[in-house]
Amino acid sequence: MRRAVCPGSFDPITNGHLDIIARAAKLYDEVYVAVMINQAKKGLFTVEERIDLIRSVTADYGNVRVESFHGLLVDFCKQRDIPAIVKGLRAVSDFDYELQMAQMNNGLSGVETLFVPTNPAYSFLSSSLVKEVAAWGGDVSHLVPPLVLEALTSKLPKRG
């Protein structure tokens, strides 16, 4: 069985993330979405809320699993016999950082990284940007799934 992982914080998951997950789901028999737990970082959504949102918006894919992880991604991969990491690249600046990570992960465990260019419609998109725009009352409905928009709207304080 061919397995891959799509890691990230997904705070919240965006249409850009979903595009990469959907494309990975076509290439692999089983795709894990690994939600990072970073104790030093306070997210808008709890890890459990992120997992629930991701499970809901990927429910139509029969081969996507969603789990949290803490520590090294290569350990997550080893424990589940996952030989490949799928990462979306938005810009050259992403590549510089992600290449270093890919080389480190490969050196640590032999896990390969597959870089997937982001759909140009999402090349500017990040969870941080979505939260910032939404916090100021901007329309992000075209950037996140409807369920995520609803959750985002209920989490953010009303401005005005």
Rank of each mutant, 00 (worst) to 15 (best):
Met1Glu: 09
Arg2Thr: 14
Arg3Met: 08
Cys6Val: 15
Cys6Asn: 02
Pro7Lys: 04
Phe10Thr: 02
Asp11His: 08
Pro12Val: 00
Pro12His: 09
Pro12Thr: 00
Ile13Gln: 07
Leu18Val: 03
Leu18Tyr: 03
Asp19Arg: 04
Arg23Ile: 00
Ala25Cys: 04
Leu27Gln: 09
Val31Ala: 06
Val31Gly: 04
Tyr32Glu: 03
Tyr32Ala: 08
Val35Gln: 08
Met36Ala: 15
Met36Gln: 14
Ile37Gly: 04
Ile37Lys: 14
Asn38Asp: 15
Gln39Asp: 15
Ala40Asp: 15
Lys42Cys: 03
Gly43Ser: 14
Thr46Ser: 15
Val47Asp: 07
Val47Pro: 12
Val47Met: 07
Arg50Tyr: 05
Ile51Gln: 09
Leu53Lys: 04
Leu53Tyr: 07
Ile54His: 05
Val57Tyr: 07
Val57Ala: 05
Val57Glu: 02
Thr58Glu: 03
Ala59Thr: 03
Tyr61Phe: 15
Tyr61Lys: 12
Gly62Met: 06
Gly62Phe: 11
Gly62Lys: 08
Val64Tyr: 10
Arg65Phe: 14
His70Ile: 09
Gly71Thr: 10
Leu72Lys: 12
Leu73Asn: 02
Val74Gly: 04
Asp75Lys: 14
Asp75Tyr: 07
Phe76Ser: 08
Phe76Pro: 02
Phe76Gly: 06
Cys77Arg: 05
Cys77Met: 06
Lys78Asp: 11
Gln79Asp: 15
Arg80Gln: 07
Asp81Ile: 00
Val86Phe: 02
Lys87Val: 01
Lys87Asn: 01
Lys87Met: 01
Lys87Pro: 00
Lys87Ala: 01
Gly88Thr: 05
Arg90Ser: 01
Ala91Cys: 12
Val92Phe: 12
Ser93Val: 10
Asp94Phe: 05
Phe95Tyr: 13
Tyr97Asp: 01
Leu99Tyr: 13
Leu99Asn: 08
Leu99Ser: 04
Gln100Gly: 11
Ala102Pro: 03
Gln103Leu: 15
Met104Gly: 03
Asn106Cys: 05
Asn106Glu: 11
Gly107Tyr: 11
Gly110Phe: 12
Val111Trp: 08
Glu112Thr: 11
Thr113Ala: 10
Thr113Ile: 04
Thr113Tyr: 13
Val116Ile: 15
Thr118Ala: 13
Asn119Phe: 03
Ala121Glu: 14
Ser123Leu: 00
Phe124Arg: 01
Leu125Tyr: 05
Leu125Ile: 05
Ser128Val: 03
Ser128Asn: 12
Ser128Asp: 11
Val130His: 12
Val133Asn: 07
Ala134Tyr: 09
Ala134Arg: 01
Ala135Val: 00
Trp136Arg: 12
Trp136Gly: 11
Trp136Tyr: 15
Trp136Ser: 09
Gly137Glu: 12
Gly137Met: 11
Gly138Ala: 07
Gly138Phe: 10
Asp139Ile: 08
Asp139Pro: 09
Asp139His: 10
Ser141Cys: 07
Ser141Phe: 07
Ser141Leu: 04
Leu143Arg: 01
Pro145Asn: 08
Pro146Glu: 15
Leu147Arg: 10
Leu149Ser: 09
Leu149Thr: 00
Glu150Tyr: 10
Glu150Ser: 14
Ala151Asn: 06
Leu152Ser: 05
Thr153Gln: 14
Thr153Lys: 14
Ser154Val: 03
Ser154Arg: 15
Lys155His: 14
Pro157Leu: 07
Lys158Asp: 09
Arg159Pro: 06
Gly160Tyr: 14
